[in-house]
Design a protein around this nucleic acid. Structure first.
Lengths: 145, 145
DNA sequence: CCTTGAGCTAAAGTTGGCTTCAAGTTGCAG
DNA sequence: CTGCAACTTGAAGCCAACTTTAGCTCAAGG
C-alpha cells in the first residue's frame, strides 16, 4: 500500500477528472504535497475528502459551501468541541431540510401511484394533498431560503 | 379568485423572477397562454409546476432532467397507466438515491457528534465507519452514475 | 541517453442557469 | 384618452464549475 497518490491515481480511484482535482485545489477544497519535481502527491485521506465533495455536490450544495464546511473545521488552533458541534449542527439542518424536500417530492409521486389516478399533471402539480392554499393573498409554497 | 396569472403575479407568488419564468418557458418547462396583446397568462396549475421545478433544482436535479420528467408525462395521447407508472418509478429511484446519499452524509456528521471525537477531519473524511476499504485495487467509493 | 506517458501552469473556452439591457408595446386607473 | 407601470423580444453579460489547449518538465523503462 502506497503512502500517497499521484493525481492520476486519485482521479482513477475517485472517478473525478484530474482537471477537476486541480480546480478543487485552486478553490481551496483539497490540498496536496509536492514532490521535488513539483508534482502533486495526495495523502490517502484526500480520497475521502473528494468523496465528501462529490456527494455534497450531487445533492445541490455549492463548492463554496463545501469549502466553508471543510475549512472552518480543522483550523490552525485545534477546534474546540463548540466549534465543530456548531458547524455539524449547521450542516445537519441544511441536510435535514433537503431530505425533507426530497421526501416530499418523492411522496407526491408515490401518492400518485397509490391513488391510481392517471394524470400526474393534475394530481401532483395542480392539486397535491398539501396544506398550501392556492387562493388568498398570503398563499405561498413552502420554499426554504 | 382569478382564472389566470400575469407573469408578475406568478413571479410574486412563486418567488421566482420573471426573467427566470420566461427562461423556463423557452426551455420547455412551463407554458402560458397569450392575451390579444401578446402578454403571458398562466393557468393556476403552473404555480405548482414552478414549485416542483424549484424543489427539484434545490436537490441537485438539472432543468433538463426536470423538463424530461414534466414532458414525458402529459403527452398528446392520454398517458397510459404504464407511461406514468414507469416514469414515476424512474424518478422514485433517483430520489431514493439522493435521499440515501443525504442520509449517509448527515449520519456521518451525526456519528461525529455522537462519538464525542474532536476532529471531524479524521473522523468523517479520513475514517468514517463505512464499508469501503481504502486499500486494494478494486476499492471505490459508492458513487452513483 | 532517449523516448514516452504522466504531470505542470496559465489562459481561453464551454455549459447551465440565469439577469440585464435596449427599445418598443400593452392594459388599466383616472 | 392619456399616462405609466407592467409587459414584450433579442442579444449580451455573468457566475459557477469545469475542460481544453499550448507549451513545457518530470520520471521511469529499454
Amino acid at each position: 500500500m502506497q503512502e500517497s497518490l499521484t493525481i492520476g491515481q486519485l482521479s482513477a480511484r475517485s472517478g473525478v477528472a484530474s482537471s477537476a482535482l486541480r480546480y478543487y485545489e485552486r478553490m481551496g477544497l483539497l490540498r496536496a504535497d509536492r514532490t521535488g519535481g513539483n508534482q502533486r502527491r495526495y495523502a490517502r485521506g484526500e480520497l475521502r475528502r473528494v468523496a465528501f465533495i462529490r456527494i455534497s455536490q450531487q445533492v445541490g450544495i455549492s463548492l463554496e459551501e463545501i469549502r466553508e464546511a471543510l475549512e472552518s473545521l480543522p483550523a490552525a488552533r485545534t477546534p474546540t468541541p463548540e466549534d465543530w458541534t456548531q458547524l455539524s449542527q449547521l450542516w445537519r439542518n441544511r441536510l435535514d431540510e433537503k431530505i425533507t424536500l426530497l421526501t416530499r417530492l418523492r411522496d407526491d409521486l408515490d401518492g400518485c401511484i397509490g391513488c391510481g389516478c392517471l394524470s400526474l399533471r393534475r394530481c401532483i402539480l395542480s392539486n397535491p394533498g398539501d396544506q398550501v392554499a392556492d387562493e388568498g393573498p398570503g398563499a405561498r409554497l413552502a420554499m426554504p431560503r
